[in-house]
Design a protein around this nucleic acid. Structure first.
Length: 509
RNA sequence: GGCGCUAUCGUCUAGGGGUUAGGACGUGAGAUUCUCAAUCUUAAAACACGGGUUCGAUUCCCGUUAGCGCUACCA
């Protein structure tokens, strides 16, 4: 097709959550459209009334927006139901169009009525399997006389509509895979309209793509075997063929198709985990597409849109690597505006009753950003933050002392001595203990107790945070102290309170 | 069973008739640190197999094997 302006579409079925496989297909379509100044449309494939639900459609569109994909034509979440001159964009609202077109095919003789029953067809299929033959329709109804058709019709017998497939092999071009050819026998005479009157996927897709003037059909390779049927439909109408591009499947670590049992795969679940959209789109772009040179790993959407080409899409299936996604997420978390990260991270803390729901005061907001700066390098995902910061809000000396590893540190005499000296000095310090004051106190504890290094710091760390590992004291001390002065839903215990309570809980020997 | 698609480090990929086959994630080691994380340095790690074509093939062709998809009056 020789048009200057490419038009592509993403055509999901609203039968469930948007998952990474479809999201990647949507992304590649969007990237391709943006790269070449074309149009990106969304069409809802809801001809399977059994499984389609409106709430999935809404969620789908929200997920797409969250990813940063916008569309030029298609359904809308907001006020107007849809935008664009080629609607409706929901297949359930296009039934009349499909009906008109089937009449044309029937009239031209390109399609015919098939009165075969399900039982007949099943029997034929079983025979074919037993004989190790390809399963093809016998073509019994292909050439029944018009009298016979009338006879069936007057008896109100239900019929399906089938497309006549010629003898020639069906060929098309795929931008990812090159020339593809299917033998005519392998295609058989496909059903276009069910005997219920409901049109079939392969038919409606083709009608819609043609009518919406789609120039490049970019979709998952599970549709590759469907493509010859669709090509035959284009040909039956005399329509020009679009370009096709079939994207490989995304697999799980066990090399089977990625699904829920491999863990979180829906876009919504990644969002809930605290994966940034730019991390996800960057990762998805890299999964199946290689930039020229192959040494760059991080791309903004704009950079992707400037470089993306279908020719560089890999034809082989790719295993989804959660680790690399997490790495990318860490990268973008560090690069993100602190205020933005704070707004995204806040709900995880609010849910535990540790922070007020909404941004309430500048002092709390500022403190929270300080907290995030400290813990962000330690996490892959936002939802891991509360666990890392738990000791601030839930200071629990009893559990800390009971912990085996901690107990090992605390049992020796040196640790007792360190804690005693430390407590004595901390108690004397003026209320908010500064990092400098803490440091000075530790230097004194060091000389008084003779302990140094681990022996000096570990007992203190356990007394203050309940664990022998964590962020630097220089940062933690001010954070604890500042937190203790804030009107938080769950009060943060101050350094002095912590030491006091810890020693009280420590069994004497 | 039939038809189709695919095959470079464990994973994502770059590359391409002659290369020390490059990068990244992950993994190991080291540096740093009271510790963990982060960070920096560094190491190990791949052309599925068998035939052709060719002076030469990981690269091109054909098979084999394996994986996946389709094989519906599902999408």
């Amino acid at each position: 097709m020789n048009q200057s302006k490419p038009r592509v579409r993403f055509a999901p079925s609203p039968t469930g959550q948007l998952h990474v496989g479809n999201a990647r297909t949507a992304l590649y379509n969007w990237l391709f459209a943006r790269r070449f100044g074309g149009d990106f449309l969304i069409r809802i494939e809801d001809t399977d009334i059994e499984r389609s639900e409106a709430r999935y459609e809404t969620q789908l569109l929200e997920d797409l927006r969250w990813l940063g994909l916008d569309w030029d034509e298609g359904p809308q979440v907001g006020a107007s139901k849809e935008i664009g001159p080629n609607g409706p964009y929901r297949q359930s609202e296009r039934l009349e169009i499909y009906r008109e077109h089937i009449e044309r095919l029937l009239a031209s003789g390109a399609a015919y009525r098939c009165f075969c029953t399900a039982e007949q067809l099943d029997a034929e299929r079983e025979q074919a399997i037993a004989a190790h033959q390809p399963q093809v329709y016998s073509g019994r109804c292909r050439s029944i006389s018009s009298d016979e058709i009338e006879f069936h019709l007057t008896k109100h017998e239900p019929f399906a509509v089938r497309l006549k497939i010629g003898a020639e092999p069906i060929r098309f071009h795929d931008m990812v895979r090159g020339a593809v050819e299917f033998a005519a026998e392998a295609v058989s005479d496909p059903i276009l309209v069910r005997s219920s009157g409901m049109p079939v996927y392969n038919y409606v897709v083709t009608i819609d793509d043609a009518l919406m003037r789609i120039t490049h059909v970019i979709r998952g390779d599970d549709h590759l075997s469907n493509t010859p049927k669709q090509v035959a439909i284009y040909q039956a109408f005399g329509w020009p063929l679009p370009e096709f591009a079939h994207l490989s499947t995304i697999l799980g670590p066990d090399k089977t198709r990625l699904s829920k049992r491999h863990g979180a795969t829906s876009i919504a679940s990644f969002r809930e985990m605290g994966i940034l959209p730019e991390a996800l789109t960057n990762y998805l772009a890299l999964l199946g597409w290689g930039a020229e040179g192959g040494t760059r790993e991080t791309f903004t959407m704009a950079e992707l849109a400037a470089e993306f080409t279908l020719e560089r899409v890999t034809p082989s299936p790719a295993i989804f690597d959660f680790n690399k996604l997490y790495w990318l997420n860490r990268h973008y978390l560090k690069a993100a505006e602190p205020k933005r990260v704070a707004a995204l991270a806040r709900p995880y803390f609010a849910a535990r009753g540790w922070l007020p729901e909404a941004s309430s005061s500048d002092s709390i907001d500022g403190w929270f950003e300080q907290l995030l700066a400290l813990f962000l390098p330690a996490v892959d995902q936002l939802d891991q933050l509360p666990e890392k910061a738990r000791f601030l809000f839930a200071f629990d000396p009893v559990t800390a002392i009971a912990d085996n590893e901690n107990a090992a540190v605390l049992t020796n005499d040196s640790a007792r001595k360190v804690l005693g000296e430390f407590a004595a000095r901390i108690a004397m310090l003026p209320a908010p203990v500064t990092a400098e004051a803490f440091k000075a106190a530790m230097t004194e504890v060091k000389t008084a107790s003779g302990a140094k290094g681990k022996d000096l710091f570990h007992p203190v760390r356990i007394a203050l945070t309940g664990a022998h590992s964590g962020p630097e004291f220089d940062k933690v001390i001010p954070l604890i102290e500042a937190g203790s002065q804030l009107p938080l839903p769950t009060p943060v215990a101050s350094v002095q309170q912590r030491v006091e309570r810890f020693l009280a809980a420590l069994p004497s020997r």
